[in-house]
């Protein structure tokens, strides 16, 4: 069960993309998502696809791992596509029954929506594939720094995010163990109505909460033992700073965004 979870996992390598400043990567994902939603013509999607493919190849993350992240959301992609195919009203009708109809534009629109979701998932997972959770939380902490002025506990939030990410696999494993133990005692989770099913989950949820609290308690001691909040002048092993790589990446990103905008404005005369 836990072995199948790929989404959100770091893939260790030392590629150009891995070495980029996490702040730039966070920014890049934002720009890419905006670009995807600016896309309306086929060529724009092709440009997004090309950009993403280059990023994947440069990062040296195996294509198979990237494809697995898509597999995780395949159902959502499928559902979106189906809904759009049947409920899109415009265009030339191919087939019609009651309130359902399939049109040429509907098919096109469904394909676009599916692609958008795939692009979103792949781009964000490229971020987690190429940046350690620590780097990401450091990046977010740095971006949120201005909030310190209004006494927002930026660093605490960053540590919370980092430990949360750290404990996800541990807790998933725990759920797996508890489910097995209760099944061994004859519990079943997959029959009966909604209420019955929800009730059947209590023997899993309660031990999970109890154990999570116990873990949190012990983690708090461990944080104290490692002098958490000893000084306001906290340092970093890997301080963030922009390098020539980030500059190069920034210009690539700017070029990409320009192309997308030009495509949107019909600048190349493509439709």
């Amino acid at each position: 069960m836990t072995k199948d979870i790929v989404f959100g996992q770091y893939y260790p390598a030392s590629s150009f993309i891995h070495k980029l400043d996490p702040r730039l990567k966070l920014f890049a994902v934002l720009v890419f998502i905006v670009s995807v939603f600016l896309c309306d013509i086929f060529y724009a999607y092709a440009a997004c696809y090309a950009f993403l493919l280059i990023v994947i190849l440069v990062s040296r993350v195996p294509i198979l791992s990237v494809l697995k992240t898509i597999k995780a959301v395949l159902f959502i992609v499928f559902l979106t596509a189906v809904l759009n195919i049947f409920f899109y009203k415009e265009g030339n009708v191919f087939w019609e029954w009651e309130f359902l109809r399939i049109t040429d534009e509907g098919l096109l629109y469904a394909a676009k929506m599916a692609l958008r979701i795939i692009f979103l998932v792949v781009s964000t997972s490229m971020l987690t594939f190429t940046s350690t959770p620590m780097a990401l939380t450091d990046g977010m902490e740095s971006i949120m720094k201005p909030l310190k002025i209004i006494r927002f506990p930026v660093h605490d939030v960053a540590v919370i995010m980092s430990t949360a990410l750290r404990f996800i696999p541990t807790l998933l494993e725990e759920v797996n163990k508890i489910v097995m133990a209760q099944k061994a005692r004859g519990a079943h989770f997959d029959n009966g109505g909604l209420v019955k099913r929800a009730k059947a989950l209590l023997p899993v949820l309660i031990p999970l909460f109890v154990s999570t609290f116990r873990r949190a308690d012990e983690l708090a001691l461990a944080l104290d033992a490692r002098c958490y909040n000893a000084t306001p002048n906290r340092t970093k092993m890997k301080p963030l700073h922009f390098s020539w790589r980030d500059l190069v990446a920034f210009f690539c990103l700017a070029a990409f965004l320009t192309i997308i905008i030009l495509l949107k404005l019909g600048f190349f005369g493509l439709v």
Partner: peptide, 21 residues
């Protein structure tokens, strides 16, 4: 499986972590 699991009692590692009631 129910018949099987009634025949075979299984105690996992740290079984006290599964108490819930």
């Amino acid at each position: 499986l129910q018949k099987l699991r009634k025949k075979i009692g299984m105690l996992f590692q740290y079984p006290e972590y599964q108490l819930f009631a």
